[in-house]
């Protein structure tokens, strides 16, 4: 147990240390002369208009929701993958049904256009 996970913990510690060393180095070695213009967010050289925390497209939320559903599907498959050859036909059929239901769900989502980013208008290509 310890033999397996101690290197991983050590690795996590090493990686954080490397990252922190880099950050502190630039803080210590670099100059620090802030002024108002330097500290404004970049907006193509103009004064920023309003805050950046605006409302954004609902599609991003939908992608996140769909992701949770299908990521869970993948996660449910992993334990089955380890023993699937010995579990008998009933289990095999059950998993196939499970995948099929979710697959139909995916087709429905795609047909419904939930994951449709960008405009609906079709631009005619130059060739064709």
């Amino acid at each position: 147990m310890l033999e397996t996970y101690l290197p991983v913990v050590l690795l996590a510690a090493i990686s954080l240390t490397i990252a922190l060393i880099f950050m502190t180095l630039s803080r210590v070695m670099g100059p620090y002369r802030p002024n108002k213009v330097k500290l404004t967010p970049y907006e193509s050289g103009m004064d920023p208009i309003g805050e950046a925390k605006e409302r954004y497209s609902i599609s991003y939320y939908l992608v996140a929701m769909e992701f949770i559903v299908f990521d869970l599907e993948v996660m449910f498959l992993y334990p089955w993958v380890v023993r699937y050859l010995d579990l008998g036909f009933a289990t095999f059929a059950a998993v196939i049904v499970f995948i099929t239901v979710l697959f139909l769900g995916l087709l429905y989502t795609l047909k419904k256009g939930t994951l449709d980013f960008g405009s609906q208008t079709k631009v005619k290509p130059l060739w064709d």
Binding site: R27, P31, P41
Partner: peptide, 13 residues
């Protein structure tokens, strides 16, 4: 070069 550069955090962030 990167280490010797100034580290700026935008004031609004």
């Amino acid at each position: 070069k990167l280490i010797l550069k100034e580290d700026v955090t935008p004031s609004a962030g």
